[in-house]
Amino acid sequence: MRAIQITEFGGPEVLKISDVADPVAGAGQVLITVDRAGINYADTHQVENSYLSKTELPLVPGGEVVGRTEDGRRVVALVGSGGYAEKAVAHAPYAFDVPEGVSDGDALALVLQGTTAWHLLKTSTHLQPGESVLVHAGAGGVGSLAVQLAKLWGAGRVIATASSEEKRKQVLELGADAAIDGEPEGLKDRILEANGGKPVDIVLEMVGGPTFDESFAALARFGRLVTFGAASRQSAAAIDPTRLMKGSKTIAGFWLADCFANPTLLGDPLAELFDLTASGKLRPIVGGEYALSEVATAHEDMRARRTVGKLVLDPTR
Rank of each mutant, 00 (worst) to 15 (best):
A194P: 01
A179D: 04
L187W: 08
P199L: 13
I180L: 11
V171C: 01
G186I: 09
G175Y: 01
D201M: 09
E214Q: 12
D177F: 00
S164W: 04
P199N: 09
E173K: 01
I180V: 13
A194F: 01
R221D: 10
K198V: 09
A220D: 11
A218K: 03
I202V: 15
P199E: 04
I180W: 03
G175A: 09
D181W: 11
G197C: 09
L192W: 00
G182L: 07
T211K: 09
K198M: 11
L187H: 03
A162R: 00
F212W: 03
L225Y: 01
D201P: 04
F212K: 13
L172K: 00
G209E: 03
A220Q: 13
R224D: 05
D213S: 08
G196S: 08
I202A: 06
L174H: 01
V207D: 05
R224V: 15
G208R: 12
E166A: 12
E173A: 14
I202Q: 13
D201G: 06
A194C: 08
S215K: 12
P184E: 05
N195D: 06
F222Y: 15
L187I: 15
G197H: 10
L204K: 14
G186T: 07
G209M: 11
R168W: 02
A176D: 03
G223W: 07
P210H: 14
L225S: 08
D213G: 07
S163W: 07
D201R: 15
L174D: 00
D181G: 05
